[in-house]
Design a protein around this nucleic acid. Structure first.
Length: 113
DNA sequence: TTGCTGACCGACG
DNA sequence: CCGTCGGCCAGCA
């Protein structure tokens, strides 16, 4: 495990495991990491992810309501929506349609990583 | 070193 | 039903 056990690194690993055309929520990642209440840190980690050399599909991470709360951090209000649409996800008004259909739960899919 | 902030979520009144 | 507050961890002034 070359994992540094850092919260950021763990978030990166989970986000990178998100399949194409799927999305997850901050709370799901936080819960998977064992810190349910640290959902805010997940977003903060993703904030640092854009400074990272690796391309993190942060556009696949939205809030529990499927709302693209972090779209403003992509350097454009429409970037995140366009990226999700290019993956076959219907986004309207900054919100994912049928979000539960695209929802990807790391604790279920990864089963403990 | 202390304190505030942050891409959230859930509980409480 | 809707508004408000606390909690979680890390980075920055």
């Amino acid at each position: 495990m070359e994992n540094k056990n850092g919260f950021f690194e763990q978030v990166y690993q989970v986000v990178l495991q998100i399949p194409y055309g799927r999305v997850t929520s901050y709370g799901a990642i936080a819960a998977y990491l064992g810190s349910k209440g640290s959902a805010r840190m997940v977003g903060w980690a993703l904030n640092s992810s854009r400074f990272s050399k690796v391309s993190i599909p942060a556009h696949r991470v939205v809030n529990q309501a499927g709302l693209l709360t972090g779209k403003r951090h992509f350097g454009g209000q429409d970037i995140m929506e366009e990226l999700l649409r290019s993956e076959g996800i219907t986004v309207e008004g900054g919100q994912i349609m049928n979000m539960e259909h695209y929802f990807w739960d790391p604790s279920k899919e990864l089963e403990g990583y």
